[in-house]
């Protein structure tokens, strides 16, 4: 899933400092699962912002709506009713950063702000802890590495690791961070594939990644 976290409330307060009536929009997709921008977090942020503004003696009206997803135009339709029937000064989106861009594209004259920092593609390690697992390089090669991704999980994205900083299973950047190359070695060993580690993995063609410019997938079988 896309993992994100709330921006500091101070930053969001500054974004809406000039406004008295906003629409705060959550997303029931990834950011609900990572407890960053679902219905619950929308309620909490709305309350915190209202408290802060009451404290300043300048109340703010915040309407709340949580969409099925904010990354599909048909769900952005769910905003028609609240936006057409209210004169909002701005919309604040708690989806990943796809959301605010979709809302801005639909409503050309409306100010839109992101309330989250979209952080990585990852998964949960336990309740309340998430980690990065994929960097969307566009040409997955994890089968060469015991099904572990060194692009996303090695600090240096080494294809032929480990580096000299690997120590006791941990990466030199932090004792909290596993050295993924240590994990790769252990797993290849277990699978009886250590000999494959002697092969030099050639440099990667990064054109499938961001280096090739913004990416797009077109599926003719699905397109209308």
């Amino acid at each position: 899933m896309v993992v994100g976290e709330s921006k500091p409330i101070e930053e969001i307060l500054a974004m809406v400092a000039d406004f008295d009536k906003i629409l705060l929009t959550g997303c029931k997709g990834c950011v609900t699962v990572c407890n960053a921008g679902g219905q619950k977090e929308v309620g909490i942020l709305a309350s915190a912002l209202k408290i802060a503004r009451k404290k300043e003696g300048r109340e703010i009206q915040i309407d709340e709506v949580t969409l099925e997803r904010q990354c599909d135009p048909e769900y952005i339709d769910q905003l028609e009713e609240p936006i057409n029937n209210n004169s909002y000064d701005a919309v604040v989106s708690m989806a990943c950063s796809v959301g605010p861009q979709y809302i801005a594209a639909r409503y050309e004259d409306l100010l839109v702000f992101p309330a989250l920092n979209t952080t990585f593609i990852g998964g949960s390690l336990e309740h309340g802890v998430w980690a990065e697992f994929c960097q969307a390089c566009g040409a997955c090669g994890i089968h060469n590495f015991g099904a572990l991704c060194p692009i996303a999980r090695c600090a240096k994205s080494l294809l032929n690791g480990p580096c000299g900083g690997s120590s006791g299973g941990k990466c030199e950047i932090s004792p909290e961070t596993d050295c993924v190359w240590h994990l790769i070695y252990d797993r290849m060993n277990r699978l009886g594939q250590l000999d494959k580690m002697a092969n030099v993995v050639m440099f990667k063609d990064w054109t499938t990644s961001r280096d090739g410019g913004p990416r797009k997938i077109v599926r003719e079988d699905l397109k209308q």
Binding site: P8, I9, E10, L13, I44, A48, I51, A52, K55
Partner: peptide
């Protein structure tokens, strides 16, 4: 933490 962040 939230209260502190918003100056309460």
């Amino acid at each position: 933490k939230v209260l502190e962040e918003i100056g309460l």
